[in-house]
Design a protein around this nucleic acid. Structure first.
Lengths: 226, 226
DNA sequence: TAGATTGTTAATCGATTAACAATC
DNA sequence: TAGATTGTTAATCGATTAACAATC
């Protein structure tokens, strides 16, 4: 590599306030923007109007310079000496992540975990709507959980089609997970959120996210112990 | 920077099979090792005896070269042409992450989520043991959840001391989370696992991990939409 | 042996951060 | 104005990956 050479970096053409760029975000940037969004959403709920990169850093543990850098790649959202307007930043990041709209979720499993998910608004806050809940247990089918009537999993395919469901959440026992994952895939769901311990095998075009609190805990513990 | 210069890299002294190094792992390495451990633990349950870096890659979405590289930093655990012995690798990684022992957890909240956590073995599989469950609701105090009797949160401090609890898991409503986090901190807990939506402020020596399925989902959705 | 898979190198690429001028 | 905080540069650092010899 030669140096002393001034590299002209590719730069996004400023698009009159439009934050979304045509290039795909890197994994890291997308992950961090999502975390900022989480904090901002909660800050907004608490009535906070502006937030500084330092405050965002305190909550996310992301370096404040990096936060400013991440954001400045899409526009000048902040005000020097003041910080960022919480509400405006929320909608900018939603635009960047292209998740400004509503997305429909199918919840599989009406046990304790399923009920916890259905009655919380963690998903609702971010534009995800649980539009159907399924279980195989006839005792549970027909009962109401959250604001949905529990259906039998045999109705899965039809509901995915009718309700335009893009995400399936697996809150079922380990041994039932792979079978239901297969059914979700066949029904056309492209993102599976796995709360079971099962390792899931799916076609490459389907994304699986496995929730693993114990893994996160191991990781936190390491830094506590060292 | 000059080049053509051969940099001598610091290298761990081989310690006769001992995998744990004296240097602190980087954030990235610790996070990835935890994920390998999760997959290996499940693979072991399923009776798998060996696993290749490619198989680990399929499940973790970490590049197979990087997996081999991460592991080879601590010893030669694999067998060429065969792969890694699942059971041996589990114990090596546990040694590296220093989580070979048992660690005690306090669970706050005996609602649906608390019950789901108490009756699952996601934590138990990794050496975490729920040794106490708390709630403020007198209806719930005294009932049995998992294999524990639910206690009132007034007993928190004493139990943390008696049972040597290092981790507190918050499975409570958003508006109760900060208050209980404060109590956990006062009781001496160093790691808080937050399942509520609340943003928590804690002293710098305490680690908070906030679970955020919706954030993970946003992130997955971005790569699906683009 | 032939095939498979590790361990390791060497090169590239992107993430991270300190520092500070710009400016609200 | 004075103080605070952004936006941006320039440099460093660590992560990532292709490639392949070693070897089971």
């Amino acid at each position: 590599m030669t140096y002393g050479e001034t590299t002209t970096r590719p730069r996004e053409v400023e698009m009159d306030g439009a934050a979304a760029s045509s290039e795909r975000l890197s994994l890291g940037v997308a992950a961090r923007l999502s975390r900022y969004l989480q904090v901002l959403t909660q800050a907004k709920k608490m009535g906070k109007e502006t937030i500084s990169s330092q405050e965002l850093s305190d909550y996310t543990h992301v370096n404040s310079t990096q936060i400013r850098r991440d954001l400045s790649g899409f526009g000048k959202f902040g005000k020097r000496g003041v910080g960022y307007n919480v509400e405006a930043l929320v909608s900018q990041i939603r635009k960047i992540l292209r998740t400004a709209g509503q997305h429909n979720i199918a919840l599989l499993g009406a046990g304790h975990l399923g009920q916890a998910i259905a009655s919380s608004d963690i998903f609702a806050d971010h534009g995800f709507r649980v539009v159907a809940i399924f279980d195989v247990d006839d005792q549970k089918v027909g009962t109401t959980v959250g604001n949905q009537v529990v259906r039998h999993t045999t109705e899965l395919r039809q509901m995915v089609e009718d309700e335009d469901i893009v995400v399936g959440v697996l809150a079922v026992p380990t041994n039932a997970a792979q079978g239901l994952a297969d059914e979700l895939v066949e029904a056309g769901v492209k993102i599976i959120f796995n709360y079971s311990e099962s390792l899931l095998l799916v076609p490459p075009e389907v994304t699986v996210h496995t929730s693993s609190p114990a893994v996160d805990l191991l990781y936190a513990l390491y830094f506590y112990l060292t």
